[in-house]
């Protein structure tokens, strides 16, 4: 098993290297004259050249890239060209906020969607089923930033129950989490339902019912466990979408997370912040994907066996 994990980590490395190379080169090609940005327009040509040498900008871009990656391994992502703040520190101070939002959203999504999926599967083709699935369909079709706006309109503007933005206590995470989570919930509900329907058709369920097992035991003891794998897949896939969704939710709710931070830095054309931020995101996503795969192994011994065998 450990071998498998190590192998996966090794496989992550080329992906991260390619991503970071593309981003580094791309951002640096478009950032204009960095020395001038830092020193201002009163600086003389010697001062500008000295700054360029100091920042390593006189070397070919590949060499710059390697230096950058070498520093990355020590946790040094450089400093902002605009206000000199350390990129890694800024990332670290905001990343937990996005994590908080992501987890709350997934929690909310799972709490709503899994029971809904089970219920509609058990009551297939009734009006409850249709209503549930239509609701899920709406959820998937709604752009989440619009949902955020509507939530602010209802709960903040009209009713005044919840804050409309910023991070200021337990109530301020509710609306952003719903915004990010509702779309996820819809996806997960649909997957749960189809997965449960699959499982429920199986012979062993029929046997259990024939043996007189009470319905709730049938669902929770026999069906749900096996249905979990596709559900976990769905949840895991949604995690990758969370970062996407969070950029929008963070913008609508002024939530101080990394999505919005990267985006703000792009408008400020603060290259080191953007480069560092996106590379960190890529690394985080790879780790998340790995963790999701490990969760599969946790649940399904057959998959675990596959991983172990693959070594």
């Amino acid at each position: 098993m450990i071998k498998y994990i190590l192998k996966r980590i090794l496989q992550m490395i080329p992906a991260i290297l390619i991503t970071s190379l593309l981003i580094f080169v791309g951002m640096n090609l478009t950032s204009g004259d960095v020395a001038r940005t830092i020193l201002g327009d009163r600086a003389s040509e010697e001062q500008l050249q000295a700054k360029r040498v100091e920042l390593g900008l006189d070397k070919p871009i590949i060499v710059q890239y390697f230096n950058y990656m070498a520093k990355l391994c020590t946790g040094d992502l450089g400093k902002s060209y605009i206000n000199g703040k350390d990129v890694f520190t800024e990332f670290q101070s905001r990343f937990p906020n996005t994590l908080e939002l992501a987890f709350t959203a997934i929690l909310f999504a799972s709490i709503i969607s899994i029971p809904l999926g089970i219920y509609t599967a058990m009551h297939q083709n009734t009006w409850q089923d249709t209503t549930g699935m239509v609701a899920a369909l709406f959820g998937v079709s709604m752009p989440n930033f619009w949902l955020g706006l509507l939530l602010i309109l209802l709960f903040s503007v009209k009713l005044g129950w919840l804050p409309s933005g910023g991070k200021s206590g337990i109530t301020s995470i509710i609306l952003p989490a719903i915004t990010v989570g509702l779309g996820q919930a819809a996806m997960i509900a649909r997957t749960t339902r189809s997965s449960m329907l699959d499982v429920v058709r199986q012979d062993y369920i029929r046997t259990a019912r024939a043996k007189g097992c009470p319905e709730h035991k049938v669902i929770y003891k026999h069906a749900l466990g096996n249905a979990m794998i596709p559900i976990i897949t769905a949840v895991g896939l949604q995690l990758s979408n969370i970062l996407t969704g969070s950029v929008l939710a963070e913008t609508v709710f002024s939530w101080p997370g990394i999505g919005r931070w990267i985006f703000d830095n792009i408008s400020k054309r603060d290259t080191p912040m953007v480069t560092g931020g996106i590379i960190m995101c890529a690394i985080v996503m790879c780790i998340v994907n790995l963790l999701v795969d490990l969760v599969y192994a946790f649940f399904d011994p057959r998959i675990k066996a596959q991983y172990v065998k693959k070594g």
Binding site: Q92, S93, R94, F95, P96, N97, L99, E100, K167
Partner: peptide, 8 residues
């Protein structure tokens, strides 16, 4: 994590 995430 969120708790020790920062002074924010």
């Amino acid at each position: 994590l969120a708790g020790c995430g920062g002074s924010s």
